[in-house]
Design a protein around this nucleic acid. Structure first.
Length: 156
DNA sequence: GCCAACGTTGGC
DNA sequence: GCCAACGTTGGC
């Protein structure tokens, strides 16, 4: 019996890696690397599984909001960038034999015809409990309920 | 570019 | 183990 599919919101700065960059990537797939927050790491390790759906959120962008949909295509595995001295995500304190940081692979599903902006998310009463609409919600990987996921995608 | 919020670090 | 200092995030 397969595990029930779950839903997430992944933040990415559009100038760094946008939904268009994901669509243009080889196999339309990329490692979601560079996560350097323990709470987010624990979600990757313990909760997020292949087959889960992802709201692709452009942070620090104009506009800021949900720009597309992706899906998780590989369970968590060690993030190679932590051992790469040339990477901005290099972590010299992460032990080789017990990697501190993990990543999953995500694949492009679709780009929304328009960005569902943060202001709209905040204005929708059905999304009042959604983490991204809350003040100071900086977590780059956030859990989303199925209802929230469907509500957001219906706002296009 | 500003700055509030928040996570991490490190001295004690 | 506390907590001030510091760095980063991210909306605006």
């Amino acid at each position: 019996m397969a595990r029930t599919k779950r839903y997430w919101l992944f933040k990415s700065e559009a100038s760094a890696f946008s939904i268009d960059d994901l669509a243009a990537a080889k196999d339309e797939t990329t490692p979601w690397d560079g996560v350097r927050n323990y709470q987010a790491r624990n979600l990757l390790r313990d909760e997020i599984r292949k087959g889960d759906r992802v709201l692709y959120y452009h942070s620090n962008s104009r506009p800021t909001g949900v720009a597309g949909v992706a899906r998780v295509v590989r369970d968590a595995y060690p993030d190679a960038t932590q051992f790469d001295p040339a990477s901005r995500y290099h972590d010299p304190r992460s032990p080789q034999d017990a990697p501190r940081w993990l990543c999953v692979d995500v694949a492009f599903v679709r780009k929304l015809p328009r960005v569902i902006e943060l202001s709209e998310l905040k204005a929708n009463p059905a999304l009042a409990d959604m983490m991204v609409t809350r003040r100071g919600a900086r977590l780059s990987i956030q859990p989303v309920t199925k209802a929230e996921y469907e509500t957001v995608l219906a706002m296009v």
